[in-house]
Simulated assay, not measured.
Amino acid sequence: MYGYAHHWSNAMTREENFVEGSCLSNETITDWYSYCREAVVTYQVDKQESKGKIGGPGKIVQIDESKFGKRKYNKGRRVEGYWVLGMIENGSEDLRLEVCPDNVRSAEVLIPLIKKHVADYWKAYDCLRDHGYEHLKVNHSDPDNPFVTSDEPTGPTTVRTTVTTTPPEKFHLGTEKMNWYGTNVYCQRNNWKLLVLDSAEIQKEFEDFIKRKNLQNLNYWTAGNQLVDMKTWHWDLDGPAFNYTHWAKGQPDNYKGSQHCLQLFANSLQWDDCNCEIHMNFACLKY
């Protein structure tokens, strides 16, 4: 137990034995370490009180799976017991543990458990990127960087997983040009909405997003329009009136009396009123 508490390996425990000569077998040390781990897990599961989520943008969360329970006939690999999912943020002592229901470790089980504790590799881990996480494998054979490796480590790996939480993309760019009406239908079918820029903050977010993708040389539809009364500018057909604007100089001008939908000028991404029937690029707001 002293060796376990000081994070000694099996070999070091044998070397640091107080009795002269080798009297502890590897199996005995492994059994004692397993017992200590199970005691810690049992206590933690019973006593843990979650205080919000761990992780966040730029944070790293270590995630590990282990099975706890008795070995069949007290020898060989452990085959009876419960699979436990452990999560802890680097530099923190806030450990989170979850018992896998019915010992199932599929994506349907593990992803909700991870999302329960980790802020916005079994096969279950393959889809972490779809949920806003970045998956990095573990390579204990690398002495310089033993924990985090690339997706294709060369040394032996374990099922322990390291994830860095990165916010999922807020915007989705349409793949083909459409008129203003078609863009609304497209976004709504995907449970999104056409781009709403109702504050300076969201305007800058979108500008930064477009510049990262080097696509600022295109025009984009937004949800802005005055189709309800042809006078007042609103977001969506039934949304709020504008309380923030970023019009280009001289806009809106309702050229020829037919410009009732809001586009973003290429490059400057300033606002301009435009004929709703024109086909152009667009962006959906995902959340």
Rank of each mutant, 00 (worst) to 15 (best):
M1G: 15
M1F: 14
H6R: 15
S9G: 15
N10P: 03
T13N: 03
T13I: 13
T13M: 13
E15W: 10
N17P: 01
E20W: 09
E27Q: 11
T28W: 12
C36Y: 10
R37Q: 11
R37K: 13
V41N: 14
T42I: 11
V45H: 08
K47G: 04
Q48F: 09
E49V: 15
S50R: 15
K51Q: 12
P57G: 08
K59F: 02
K59S: 14
K59A: 13
I60V: 13
D64K: 04
K67N: 04
G69I: 08
K70G: 11
K75D: 08
R77I: 06
R78Q: 11
V79T: 15
W83H: 12
I88R: 15
I88A: 13
E89L: 00
G91Q: 04
E93M: 06
D94I: 06
R96G: 02
V99N: 09
P101G: 02
D102F: 07
N103A: 09
N103Q: 13
N103V: 10
V104R: 13
A107H: 12
I111E: 06
L113C: 04
K115W: 06
K116W: 07
V118F: 02
D120H: 13
Y121D: 10
Y125S: 01
R129C: 07
R129I: 09
R129W: 08
H131C: 06
Y133F: 14
E134C: 09
H135V: 10
H135Q: 07
K137G: 02
V138P: 01
N139A: 09
S141L: 05
D142L: 01
D144P: 00
F147T: 03
S150K: 13
P156M: 09
R160N: 14
T164G: 07
T164L: 10
E169S: 14
H172Q: 10
H172S: 10
L173A: 01
L173P: 01
G174D: 01
G174N: 02
T175M: 01
E176A: 12
M178H: 09
Y181T: 05
T183P: 01
V185W: 01
V185K: 05
Y186F: 11
Y186T: 00
W192N: 01
K193R: 14
L195M: 12
E201L: 12
Q203E: 10
K204V: 05
E205D: 14
E207N: 11
I210V: 11
L218I: 02
N219A: 12
W221G: 00
T222W: 01
T222G: 03
A223S: 15
L227S: 07
K231N: 13
W233H: 05
H234P: 02
A241S: 14
F242Y: 13
F242H: 03
F242R: 02
F242M: 04
Y244K: 04
H246L: 03
W247H: 04
A248S: 12
G250E: 06
Q251F: 10
Q251L: 07
N254A: 04
C261V: 08
L264N: 01
L264W: 01
L269V: 04
N275A: 06
M280Y: 00
M280R: 00
F282M: 00
L285D: 13
K286W: 05
Y287G: 14
